[in-house]
Design a protein around this nucleic acid. Structure first.
Lengths: 129, 129
DNA sequence: TCGCATACTTACTTTTTTGTCAGTACTTAA
DNA sequence: TTAAGTACTGACAAAAAAGTAAGTATGCGA
């Protein structure tokens, strides 16, 4: 559970208020959220589909992140009153608005990774035979 | 200390490999890094200047984040052999390349916050006198 | 020789995040 | 009556991130 009076929580709250980046990251950051959002960029998905298409997530984590995204208004939860149950998750307008930003972050991250690989390759080619 | 064989670490490593966003966030994310980077966007700064201009950071945290940014090649540490010591931190080319991305994230975060405030204001104006 | 200024470091504690795993609810079909 | 399918929930444990507080090194000036 989250404390509200810990220095940690107060620092975070202050930064969220004053720094747009920290605020944004408090919404789209975290271990699994970016991947979830990328999946949903292509259209709505069922809970189980998400679970299968994200290697490594546990059910608990998936649900937790979906709930947070929902609370922040990035995704919509659509329940079909059927048995067995069927629930779909879909980006809201706000969620879709994160698309270009996510792409920007992704591009920067990938560029950096590729650069690092290039450097590594160079170093390898320099190393003694 | 970080384990290397925990599920947590393995999951993170995998996501860093496959998701540009997670990779980028592993570099510019965290409690204080965005603020540090924003400060340095305007030019180099001394350790103490950073410490004073970022309310709430402890010395330990500042140093830790500076070290990580340095290791990832975003900032350069410039030591002047003087007494008392003088150390300046400056963005590298890679660090500067993060500027537009940070601005993009910041803009999105701020827009979201303002939207929320608007809604709140509306609700206040509706509430009984 | 004492304190000051600067830039850290270290040991330890608290808080937060992430992971594990078993269990729930409901209906249909075998 | 039993298993299967779907979408979860809850109790607990491990790991990671953040915070606290005291200490280090160096040379200068009083």
């Amino acid at each position: 559970m989250r404390k509200t009076n810990s220095t940690n929580a107060l620092n975070e709250a202050q930064l969220i208020r004053n720094c747009g980046v920290v605020h944004a990251l408090s919404i789209i950051g975290g271990r699994w959220k970016p991947t979830i959002l990328f999946n949903l960029l292509y259209g709505k998905m069922r809970y189980n589909e998400l679970l299968k298409s994200i290697p490594g997530v546990s059910e608990r984590m998936l649900i937790a992140q979906l709930r947070e995204l929902e609370q922040h208004g990035l995704i919509k939860r659509i329940v079909y009153p059927e048995v067995p149950p069927k629930v779909e998750y879909e980006l809201t307008t706000v969620g879709k608005s994160a698309g270009p930003m996510l792409q920007g972050i992704s591009d920067w991250g990938n560029k950096l990774r590729n650069k690092k690989n290039t450097v590594t390759k160079k170093m390898v080619s320099i190393s003694p035979a």
